[in-house]
Amino acid sequence: MDLEFALEAQDRQDVGGDRQYDVVVIGGGPAGATAALYAARANLKTLVIDKGLTAGALGLTAKIANYPGVPGEISGAELVARMRRQAESFGATFVQAKVQAVDLEGEVKTIYTNEATYTARAVVIATGAMGRGQRVPGEDRLLGRGVSYCATCDAAFFQGQEVAVVGNDDEAVEEALFLTKFARRVHFVSPTPDVKASQHLREALAQHPAVVLHAGAALREVLGRDRVEAIRIAPRGQPEQVVPVSGAFIYLQGNKPITDFLQGQLPTSETGCLVVDREFRTALPGVFAVGDVLCNHVKQAVVAAAEGAIAAMVAEKELRGRKQLAVDWAK
């Protein structure tokens, strides 16, 4: 074991001091970045927490041509980056981190990330809809019994064993490479024929002697009685295969609203999206939700952005105890 002692990336709610905000926006896609722009422009101390520029729907879109005021083709990532720069120019702060959990009840809300803990008086949820939907059979039952979503946390329990990593983005590859320090063999199961991670990670994965790549294979089931014993995968154009492993680390994306970090604190619709009123308030005071995380029948960047603007203005009204929305062009 390497011994490391750092306070930097710790849960330091009370130590750091500067982790208290008026508004914390979770997710920095068009919805979140626009909410931040409006909140910051209204002189609210605003923080956006986002796990990665290209992790959201707009961020990973190759080309967008229908965002008003931005003629011609532009990459989704560039458009998001511009929105963020604009929000920053009004004073919003962006941090790259994944929100793991929140405590939204009460007047002061707490937001826990893998880097630090923040507090806010208002929270805007704008995490989009790239979340994983249905679990595969066996996954829930064997959670904590070999099924894991955090290799860095749990790798030590798989010393000298055979494990599988399922996914195809940067996070999945990084976790697989971390696991190679403990596990005897790592089966990397990518749902797509090509791994979508950055080039240096793809290369490191391909060259690693302990990694077996299963490209273009869907995860069908996690097998085992009391512990994970194998996974069942379906490689494209080939018969299904059972791979004996004692650990299954799963990092898949999908098209479901990302609400797992809420741990049931807010009601969701049957399809898993957050429910809001006309002004994007959720059931909890001071908590708003905007963009694709809602059941929007039109999923477009401009709609998500507009919702972010409305939510920020309503949040501002409530935080300042006003009865009416402040008109943004008034200043």
């Binding site: 490391e4 710790q10 959990a101 893998n114 860095t152 946390c153 749990d154 790798a155």
Partner: peptide, 13 residues
């Protein structure tokens, strides 16, 4: 816990 687990301090605290 393990020392490399970012979620763990919250549970311990």
């Amino acid at each position: 816990v393990t020392p490399t687990c970012p979620y763990c301090p919250r549970a311990v605290l």
